[in-house]
Nucleic acid binder design. Structure first.
Lengths: 234, 234
DNA sequence: CATTTTTGTTAACGTTAGGTTAAAAGCCCT
DNA sequence: AGGGCTTTTAACCTAACGTTAACAAAAATG
């Protein structure tokens, strides 16, 4: 149950309302990041992967639409829900133009918001991921299929990878021959950087090394205090 | 540039409002069929293929929800927009349960309706590419006829499949050799994603595995926490 | 060169997801 | 209302996963 919480970026400048809404969403099993304005919202958006963004339209410095546009430029897929203070037609239309998935007029019913969130996230889930390229890697004589979570050596029998093994190896592969910082894996995969998650990660590195043993040209090197490096020799 | 007009089924008992709305939609390049009540709505629905249904909730004889349920039984894919007279939370929630794509409170802004229609139809269009109208599959030595709901091994006696068995196998076949996410089956077939529907799905997987046993090259693999994969070896 | 910190590795443990079968509940059709 | 089919729920069991502990080795520190 702990594992697959959906992540929501909530950008709302009203501190009271924002906090209450955040707590409400968290009570309903979402992982919520709360940003107090558009600027901060974009920073947090860049740092993490979210399943949904809830943006207040009326905000100082950077309004919700502008933020949405920036988000769309970076990642065209994240669903966006706008919160508008009043029923302004122009706002609604503008919202849809930017690529909103829905909008809600304040004040709104919290249960309705929940339903919308659920519906939208489910919708996204049913859209089949077709660009398999991003999930396939060649690592020496290995083929990593990160979507189907298996690792094959030399075209032989594939070995199944657990979610964490898979994610970690994928991150390493993305940085092949380059440093993959500890912190990166911990924040992206474990979503927490502390002593225990760090040790856990070391355990997984050991597992991966075992898997990769068949090809002596492939190894995972440690860079003390920094992270790891997946190298393919020659 | 003679494009195919999108077809909308409008079910609305108020004759004035219904006619105006129909004309408005037609002016915006939709082909509209107007039914005056739920009964008539279902008749017309059965006769034709529509890209979208707009249903009034409050109607004599057969309300919008009941109609929606019937429509869903016949064709689980058509997008549905509900028109509700007032903001009744229960209505909204009920709507989403039936699988509504959106709802609008009367009175609503006509431009907003247009935007929603456009957004929804577009969404459906991109979605439909993958699970296009396909009802016959070859799965190893099996033939699946998803319309007639039977599965035949090696040209022998066909086995009858129950609706759920059929739908599930069809979804797996559509994603042959690829991941068929749990979530996808649960939302598309069971329309709800919880512990019990999930367990129910596992039961069906077991049933399908039994059916598929005759061909050792065909198997349904599990990808822990993600879903299932129908593979045909070699 | 002794000490602290970081990493390597293995094993044990608790928890959750999935496999399977059977019984119960729901439906439909007379 | 009863019989046949479908679907859900329950129960029990195994497999898969991730975390933590424990101990060893390596690297940095000073």
């Amino acid at each position: 149950m702990e594992e697959l919480k959906k992540r929501i970026l909530l950008v709302e400048d009203d501190p009271n309302f924002g906090t209450v809404l955040k707590d409400y969403l968290m009570m309903n099993d979402y992982e919520v990041t709360h940003a107090k304005n558009g600027m901060e919202g974009f920073e947090k958006f860049k740092k993490d992967d979210f399943d949904l963004c809830i943006l207040d339209v009326m905000m100082p410095y950077k309004d919700g639409f502008t933020l949405a546009k920036e988000i769309r430029e970076k990642n065209s897929d994240v669903p966006i829900i706008f919160l508008t203070a009043k029923t302004m037609k122009e706002d609604v239309l503008k919202g849809y133009k930017v690529g909103a998935d829905d909008y809600l007029n304040k004040p709104f019913d919290s249960e309705v918001l929940l339903m919308k969130i659920k519906a939208i996230i489910q919708r996204k889930a049913t859209e089949t991921i077709s660009d398999s390229k991003q999930f396939e890697f060649k690592i020496g004589k290995f083929d990593l299929n990160s979507k189907l979570r298996f690792l094959r050596f030399n075209g032989g029998e594939p070995v199944k990878l657990s979610p964490k093994e898979n994610e970690l190896l994928r991150l390493l592969a993305l940085h092949e021959n380059d440093l993959m910082p500890r912190e990166l894996a911990l924040t992206k995969i474990w979503r927490d950087d502390n002593y225990f998650t760090s040790r856990s990660m070391d355990v997984y590195i050991a597992k991966l090394r075992k898997y990769l043993k068949p090809d002596p040209k492939v190894e995972i090197l440690n860079i003390h205090g920094e992270g790891f490096r997946l190298v393919v020799n020659e």
